[in-house]
């Protein structure tokens, strides 16, 4: 599957409080409501600017902090189609895949805000149409690929009942 979208650039150590603040996430499971506040404390205009199918591109340690699964869910509901980062914090990384939001570990250092990207999830190849550059993402472990290909862990468990390696 090839996805096309625009890059929204963020820095290092983007924590889950920034992705969705505790003052919103504790009171509702309505992801449409939460998605209006995504990245609010860091970039108040982001929720309005992001279009369906866009990519969030960050530096190292994306998603550090709390275990809130509302973080990838709110990004997904805001329209973000994938997150690209130099590295991810591990709980966020699992949560993202578990909810069917691709999280790609790759060299993001030359992607700037507004770049048009094409991502082939099958091959992990990222083409930057704005610069002509190609970047390769690190492959996911097979168990995560399987979860992602089922559309997330809820669907996986409904179908299989238990995890297998």
């Amino acid at each position: 599957m090839v996805m096309k979208g625009r890059a929204h650039r963020f820095g290092d150590d983007i924590n889950t409080d920034y992705i969705i603040s505790g003052r919103y996430k504790f009171k509702t499971l309505d992801m449409a409501e939460l998605s209006c506040h995504v990245m609010e404390d860091l970039d108040p205009g982001f929720a309005d600017r992001v279009n369906e199918g866009d990519f969030l591109v960050a530096g190292k340690n994306f998603g550090c902090g709390s275990s809130r699964e509302q973080a990838p869910l709110a990004l997904k509901h805001a329209g973000v189609a994938a997150v690209l980062a130099q590295s991810f914090a591990r709980i966020y990384f699992r949560n993202s895949i578990n909810n069917g939001l691709p999280a790609l570990v790759c060299d993001t250092s030359r992607i700037v805000d507004g770049d048009e990207l094409e991502i082939d999830l099958q091959t992990g190849l990222i083409s930057n149409a704005s610069t002509g550059e190609e970047i390769r993402a690190h492959p996911l472990p097979p168990v995560m690929l399987k979860i992602l290909s089922e559309g997330g862990l809820v669907e996986y468990m409904r179908k299989h009942g238990a995890l297998t390696v």
Binding site: S67, I91, R94, N98, L153, M157
Partner: peptide, 9 residues
Amino acid sequence: GVGSTDLAT
């Protein structure tokens, strides 16, 4: 620590 869906699993 894990997320909610891992916990449910």
